[in-house]
């Protein structure tokens, strides 16, 4: 059993994959906690698809693709927010339009800028076993920065995400906090591109956070439990990919879903099979049968 676990570690690429998996698990659970509490789950879908034109332009200009992806992601989020704010259009419609338009722009740019050398498959679906040491460094640095910022602004972010009106009424710069969250989400997506790909990154952001949401009653615990679920899922998915030749991104996503399902069914306080109300119901039902 132990050799089964340690054998892959002899390879440099596996050690790097573990480092990136751990780092991403933590990063995406922390950012994802804010994301789901702000009900911005679909926003992560928009941003993750919208990075494509940025990647293409960055590739064309021969600058770091992460920078291009980040800028395009932020622009898409700002477009959604502005459509919503300045018209009667509801946010889901604004998101659907923005997502597809950025994706289409990406497709056009990839063809017309002749940047088809971009490995689209890798961007869309990721390959955790193909990470380089610079990928690892990038992810670890992004994780460290986001964790420090979260620590520094924890109480303000908690207030803002819980009661945005109350926070604004207290004079907190809510627009800045919102923009900060958007930046954090985009950075997380950029960092996860290599691992799970832009199509599946939503899972990493949302899944561990909502599984934890069903298990705990405080935000910091939610981040902690979510981080553990995220990290374990990433690493387990990687082993699945190593031993069974599964696509790594998809394997990670399915394991995250498994964790969610466990929490959904068996959470001590809120699980649909284990919630106290249900126990009471079953208890009374059994008692009425016996009488």
């Amino acid at each position: 059993m132990l050799t089964w676990l340690t054998e892959p570690l002899e390879f440099e690429f596996m050690r790097q994959a573990i480092a990136i998996g751990l780092s991403l698990g933590i990063l995406s659970a922390v950012v994802g906690s804010y994301l789901i509490l702000q009900q911005m789950g679909m926003m992560s879908g928009v941003i993750s698809h919208a990075v494509l034109p940025g990647i293409s332009i960055a590739f064309f200009l021969e600058i770091n693709v992460a920078i291009g992806a980040f800028i395009a992601g932020i622009l898409s989020a700002l477009l959604v927010v502005n459509i919503q704010k300045r018209s009667r259009i509801k946010v889901d419609a604004a998101m659907a339009l923005t997502l597809t338009s950025f994706l289409a722009l990406g497709v056009i740019l990839i063809t017309s800028l002749n940047t088809d050398r971009i490995n689209l498959d890798e961007i869309l679906f990721g390959d955790i076993l193909g990470v380089t040491s610079s990928d690892v460094w990038r992810t670890v640095i992004i994780t460290a920065i986001i964790l420090i910022l979260t620590k520094l602004f924890y109480k303000e972010l908690e207030f803002y995400t819980f009661d945005p009106l109350g926070a604004k009424a207290c004079g907190l710069p809510v627009n800045l906090l919102y923009f900060g969250l958007i930046c954090a989400i985009t950075l997380t997506i950029v960092a996860s591109m290599q691992t799970v790909g832009v199509l599946l990154v939503m899972s990493l952001l949302v899944g561990p956070a909502i599984a934890a949401y069903l298990l705990v009653k405080e935000l910091d615990r939610m981040m902690l439990v979510g981080s553990i679920i995220g990290a374990v899922s990433s690493i387990a998915g990687m082993y699945g990919s190593y031993y069974f030749d599964l696509p790594s991104g998809a394997a990670i996503v399915m394991i995250i879903f498994g964790f969610f399902l466990l929490a959904f069914l068996f959470s001590p306080t809120q699980g649909i099979l284990t919630a106290p109300e249900l126990k009471n119901k079953v208890f009374y039902w059994l008692r009425s049968l016996l009488n």
Partner: peptide, 16 residues
């Protein structure tokens, strides 16, 4: 449904 305790909510009054 936000995961926050009673004391933390009252504490938000002290943030500014």
């Amino acid at each position: 449904d936000y995961p926050v305790t009673v004391e933390k909510v009252a504490m938000m009054g002290r943030i500014s």
